[in-house]
Design a protein around this nucleic acid. Structure first.
Lengths: 220, 220
DNA sequence: ACGGCCCGGATTGTCAACAATTTGGGCAAC
DNA sequence: GTTGCCCAAATTGTTGACAATCCGGGCCGT
């Protein structure tokens, strides 16, 4: 196995991935010397990456005590879901206002992939097409600022999201909600797009709350 | 003059201040060696601070070519105003839902300061009390995630904001808008608070657009 | 003149050694 | 047994030197 000779395409991005994918557990210590070996880059680079992820909220650093993966509380998860809702609702409206013909076909294409994933009961594909559909909406809206913030917020939710997807009946409901969003955007109806996105993310938040409650009582 | 012996209370914060206050011009190069002398800290620390501000969007860094103050385009300023509106509207609703009696008096106090600043025609005090009032709303809402994002967004707008404040009649209008927001939050009326905040920030965005247009044609 | 070429200064990127701090554990005193 | 103390290992923070890169200006051939 190669431990170091890999090309280093931005340590911060790789660390971010490892955290959002759950490969690094919340509160796990991030020791600079170890990361140096894992990613094959200098300690100075590790330090810069940790500083960035700290700024981003994925990592906490205490003076002279190093960095740890930031554990988000239940209350904070709700905050994130709320904020995400507020922004994504605006983005949906903007997407409806700015969608061209090519955008509509692209959007419908993404939705088709999502439907296929649901009928195939492929959770992984569903998750991916879900993300792809939302990215498509962001692209159409053309609001880079909002997109950047949403990406960060979602990176925080990702660690919990898999529980929501696994709730019984969730994929079908989610599919119907996305259908409404896509239709509204393709119709150029900003009000409807905003309302549909609000319904979708309110539903998501509801299920997230349920999952959190279940986890709290269920033990882990 | 002392150049170095000052206590270094977080370089990133001081650099951020210098940028948002307009002491460092857009596109101005940030040379590590120079900053080392100015802030009296090591180059490694300067590098970490620049990495954080890059992550935050206040600075751009190109490989082997150093860092510059990021220049935000007119279109981006609008994006930021839009996104700010979307989040702050949600925060206003949450503040209305969660305001206690002490919060109400604190909020009214801030509003009083703002009114005083307007009657005194003190632009600086107005700007400060404006920021303080919004911070108070954030505190009451208790949504740390949204507050953090809003703080970042406003740091980007700050470089342009002074132009909006100087528009004739703006302080009086702004005062009336804030009156409505404060009243709604104190009344615990989430819908009204959201609507009032939306009116206020839509108005702000309108004036910002005007200021940008004026600057584009006016020359500077 | 003019275009390409090369060089030297300025600047960023990398690295290893050193200093300072925290942490955990053993040892002694009570 | 427990409390407090102190030391050693682990880890973070700092520093300076060196390598790599970019940029402007002069130089040469045409």
């Amino acid at each position: 196995m190669d431990t170091a000779p890999r090309p280093p395409p931005d340590v911060a991005a790789r660390l971010r991935d490892a955290i959002t994918r759950g490969q690094l557990m919340p509160n796990e210590r991030l020791i600079e010397a170890d990361l140096t070996k894992v990613y094959g880059v200098n300690r100075a680079n590790i330090r810069m990456a940790l500083a960035m992820l700290d700024q981003e909220g994925l990592v906490v650093r205490e003076p002279n005590r190093g960095a740890r993966v930031r554990a988000i509380t239940d209350a904070e998860a709700i905050e994130i879901a709320d904020t995400r809702l507020a922004i994504e609702v605006m983005v949906a409206r903007q997407a409806a206002a700015r969608a061209m013909d090519t955008d509509r076909t692209a959007l419908r294409g993404r939705f088709g992939e999502m439907r296929d994933a649901v009928t195939a009961a492929d959770y992984s594909a569903f998750s991916q097409s879900n993300a792809a559909l939302h990215r498509e909406i962001h692209r159409i809206a053309g609001n880079a600022t909002a997109t950047r913030i949403l990406t960060t917020l979602k990176s925080h939710l990702m660690r919990l999201q898999y529980r929501v997807i696994l709730l019984p009946g969730r994929p079908d409901q989610s599919l119907a909600e996305h259908q409404a969003i896509v239709d509204a955007i393709c119709a150029g109806d900003g009000d409807a797009a905003e309302a549909a996105m609000r319904r979708h993310l309110t539903s998501f938040k509801h299920h997230l709350t349920q999952a959190i409650e279940a986890a709290r009582h269920g033990g882990f």
